[in-house]
Nucleic acid binder design. Structure first.
Lengths: 361, 361
DNA sequence: TTCTTTTTCCAAAACGTTTTGGTAGATTAT
DNA sequence: ATAATCTACCAAAACGTTTTGGAAAAAGAA
């Protein structure tokens, strides 16, 4: 029966005071030398930097945060009940964000909460000084989070758009443009009956994609019923297979557009089980989400792709948010540029200039 | 041409000093009242709490962190090049972690880095006092991260196990036991030729599952070739479909075990396209990962499941890490208990006691 | 009553930085 | 030679908490 001994894990950090003692300089000078101020001589600065390295000095972030009144962190808070949580797109954007924040020496603090807790969480993290600003995603019409953040004048950036997106900074991929272009190209190649296998239109990005495809019809003077829409409903594993089977029951269909690479890969199995052959009597085009667990390389030569790298979205989100945090200029939106890769015989001249286009020969 | 005006975003937080002035009490008393010390009268405590609410006081985390020398944050650092990043299991565990940390009033800071940056990142985050401990996952044999963290005596917990897992705290699901049990039950029901559609054995969890299934053979006195192993290779979308087709080419197969619900759902399509019928001349059992984007409800009555909730893993990870941070006891491992749901005619008595078993009638 | 104990409060130090407002000395200008 | 400027440094205050070591007042014990 004895008392808790020492834990043995007291790491004693080397502080600016240790450097000061070691070098016989004031802590002011140490601080200013390390932070690149001009009122310290080159020789002294060199000495300080050397000693800092030698002694393994790392400034205490919490002291910095306290005195500068900046957390050097951004917050990302998700509703924990949401289906969205597991969306693989999220992970890709997340990866892009994590990579980009390092360029600003920022950290990311992540939290989840019940739908009703979200706004109090935003409030707390800011009052806390845990966080300088927020990333949010999947904005909904009249999103209460956006109401709050705008009203409280807290820096934030949104992945996606809704009605008042001119009021805040956002980043989005050009869902409308991507699918308008893809559809236009297929129509330009002579297809008059096209299937569009889309995601769940509960999500606004799916709605945008469908609208883009339909806009192409109008532009190319085709009747609305030239495009048949098939919507996957969440949860949607294997929807691509089933919807493709359904689409192929219509013999007039000569082309299929997929809204995601997963569905395209699944669809391929259904096509192989049918009498059709990709690239011969069936033209396939798809959005390639570039998710790491979906390999489309075996299809590269047989089908066409539009792409809009989600990692770039993550990078852009961070850049936009940093502008907001530093209060630079008016909030602006950023559309991630798309790329398109076309099969040989498709009409590349129909692709607008804002796209980077590549064509296999 | 004018100077930058005021930014207009200076939020002036209410501090403990404001409360002190308002209530005419020392800041010591305010602090102690709010932190539940016993040397403050009930009446005063009440007054303080009321005023704190009224004035919207939230303690500044960075000041707290500085003075207590605790960050009240845990770190999670991932290699950003890894395929693993997108693993949907990660997201579920992550969600569990996020939910549990709130019970400890902790935050999660997340970072990614190049494989070579990881260890320096661990080092920085600790010296920084950004973080009190770490969660890591997918440990590899002789994992350098674990070497470092053990050596530096930094609190951490691992999701998964490797050779020296007796030296640190870990949480894992009982992959071996889950699949040993599932296989035992099928053998006990009389199946003599079983297909096991497993994940990529590059991952140790997949190896464990295969070993568990094979252990069942031995226990039940069946020859090793009674179990045919099919391995999906990453990236594995649609592998369940293809591997099932392949398995069904063997007419002696009377049961299939799937290593994931996604593959089971995909496999179902292949079975429907064959001459077999689930539950009649083909017995199906699967791991249900309980991922939010995979719906197995339509299969509930037709096949058997083992489950080991990933959210629970997240909760356990946090609990274990908190023990380490508070330096309580020796590091211990925690096996997440499994559950099993059996179809009517399967022999439930073969399930070991550590499982929670349910049987449809 | 007087002494002791308990209750309730507080002043001051500490955590590790950054920033403000200097000053002493060297250099340049007059 | 004197004044003005520039260079290189520093003491002290500040950021907002928690904690330490009391001390005054109230209650209880003798």
């Amino acid at each position: 029966m004895h008392d808790d001994g020492p834990t043995g894990r007291e790491r004693d950090q080397v502080t600016i005071k240790d450097l000061s003692a070691e070098l016989d300089l004031s802590i002011t000078t140490i601080s200013r030398a390390l932070n690149g101020y001009s009122d310290v001589s080159a020789k002294t600065r060199e000495r300080v930097q050397q000693a800092a390295r030698d002694m393994g000095y790392t400034p205490n972030r919490n002291a910095q945060r306290l005195v500068t009144q900046k957390s050097h962190s951004i917050g990302w808070i998700k509703g924990d009940g949401s289906q969205h949580f597991v969306d693989p797109h999220f992970v890709e954007v997340f990866a892009g964000v994590l990579r980009e924040v390092k360029n600003y020496d920022y950290d990311v603090v992540f939290a989840s909460g019940d739908e009703k807790e979200i706004i109090p969480l935003y409030e707390r993290y800011v009052k806390d000084q845990s966080v300088d600003g927020f990333i949010l995603e999947l904005p909904q019409p009249n999103d209460a989070r956006i109401d709050y953040l705008l009203d409280a004048d807290i820096p934030f950036v949104v992945h996606g758009r809704e009605a008042r997106s001119d009021k805040y900074a956002w980043v989005d991929i050009d869902n409308f443009g991507l699918f308008e272009t893809l559809t236009t190209v297929l129509i330009g190649a002579g297809h008059k009956h096209i299937a569009f296998i889309n995601g769940d239109e509960h999500y606004s990005f799916a709605v945008e994609r469908r609208r883009g495809a339909q806009a192409a019809l109008e532009k190319m003077n085709l009747a609305p019923d030239s495009l048949t829409i098939y919507n996957a409903v969440h949860p949607m594993v294997h929807a691509g297979f089933q919807l493709t089977q359904k689409a192929l029951e219509d013999p007039t269909i000569t082309a299929i557009i997929y809204s995601s690479a997963v569905m395209a890969v699944e669809g391929q199995a259904a096509i192989e089980g049918s009498s059709r052959t990709i690239g011969e009597d069936l033209e396939i085009a798809t959005m390639d989400d570039e998710l790491r667990h979906v390999d489309v390389s075996h299809l590269e030569d047989k089908i066409s792709f539009v792409r809009a790298p989600l990692n770039d979205s993550g990078h852009a989100l961070v850049r936009q948010l940093m502008q907001r945090i530093q209060n630079k200029g008016a909030p602006s939106g950023e559309l991630i540029p798309g790329r398109i890769k076309l099969r040989p015989n498709l009409p590349a001249h129909l692709v607008p200039d804002c796209f980077e286009v590549e064509q296999a020969k």
